[in-house]
């Protein structure tokens, strides 16, 4: 780990000022990913700003009937919160499918969105990586790429966003609240993470001097019809090869609203409103599910070791929709 200076912020504006005043400074909350990256010399911030004392750990009701998840609420406190369990069980189930209990006790909701890819080459400072060192190359494209992306890739990067929570948040159409030097703004979850394109060093659209303050859940929580299917190499405590968050609203056996988000397949949680629209008005059943799955994966491209993910994702979509519709 590199040496660095350390500061504590006790109000959001002070954290933002720290970021603006110190080039390369990083915020630390749970630290579960950042400290790991620092031990590997992948991250070398000259200054860490501890934000654990900011008053952002609450989970509270919103006037529109939704729920506000504080950026500093831990993953564990969020997943086991009675309102999340009752109204957003898709989110609770998804959070509990990720990491280990110890990590969920540390990891915060804001930090979870900012976790970085687990691409082997990104983590290995002995190899080139366009995400870690722009312009140095991508060994994953012709190398070991079993865990890598099949959708939205570029010639520069085929890394995946590794997390679970954001996949459910994408299906729930959550909104990320951020604070910067010029005030506050809202970023829909679907626009928070980005595709790698020619600038894979940027995982998301958060600016370097912005702080995540909260994640807002809209009223609609798909509490009755939802599913999170996570396919991984171990039955617990492993990143997804493919995951699917599905939320449905149904009337008389027909689907009236559908939300689908895929994890482990792209540089961001993958949604496709066209595939969701294909389900609306359909009777829940294998034909409709497979049609939506085929549409979601229509532009998928496999590499040497991850082509299996394309059919795996299709089948995971079908299974998630079946589980959600029969719940």
């Amino acid at each position: 780990m590199n040496s660095f200076t350390f500061a504590r912020a006790t109000e959001p504006a002070a954290a933002v000022r720290e970021l603006a005043a110190h080039d390369g400074a990083q915020l630390v909350a749970g630290g579960t990913n950042l400290l790991d990256l620092m031990k590997e010399n992948v991250a070398r911030p000259p200054r860490l700003v501890d934000i654990n004392r900011l008053p952002l750990a609450q989970i509270e009701e919103r006037p529109d009937g939704g729920l506000r998840l504080g950026a500093l609420a831990t993953n564990a406190d969020t997943a086991y919160h009675p309102a999340v369990q009752a109204r957003y069980p898709l989110l609770a189930r998804t959070i509990l499918a990720g990491a280990s209990p110890q990590l969920r006790n540390m990891a915060t909701n804001g930090g979870n969105l900012l976790q970085r890819t687990r691409c082997y080459y990104f983590y290995d400072v002995g190899t080139p990586c366009n995400k870690r060192e722009p312009g140095s190359g991508c060994p994953a494209i012709a190398g070991l790429n079993r865990m890598h992306a099949i959708l939205g890739t570029s010639e520069q990067c085929i890394a995946t966003y590794p997390g679970d929570m954001a996949v459910a948040l994408a299906a729930l159409e959550a909104v990320v609240q951020v604070q910067g030097p010029d005030g506050e703004r809202s970023i829909p979850l679907g626009e928070f993470h980005r595709l790698p394109g020619d600038t894979p060093q940027f995982d998301n659209n958060l600016r370097p001097d912005e702080l995540i303050t909260a994640i807002d859940l809209p009223r609609r929580g798909f509490a009755k019809h939802h599913s999170y299917v996570k396919v991984r190499d171990r039955s617990s405590y492993a990143f997804a090869l493919v995951s699917v968050a599905a939320g449905l609203e149904m009337e008389g056996g027909k689907i009236t609203t559908a939300r689908l988000a895929l994890g482990g397949v792209a540089h961001k949680p993958w949604r496709d409103p066209e595939a969701e629209a294909l389900l609306v008005g359909q009777a829940a059943g294998a034909d409709a599910f497979r049609a939506a799955a085929d549409h979601l994966l229509r532009d998928a491209r496999g590499y040497r070791f991850n082509a299996f993910k394309i059919e795996l994702a299709r089948r995971a979509v079908v299974r998630a929709l079946r589980e959600a519709s029969t719940a």
Binding site: V28, G30, D50, Q102, M106
Partner: peptide, 13 residues
Amino acid sequence: GKRINSCLTLAVM
């Protein structure tokens, strides 16, 4: 009272 990985947190935090 909560279990955590002590390797992934700084003493100063």
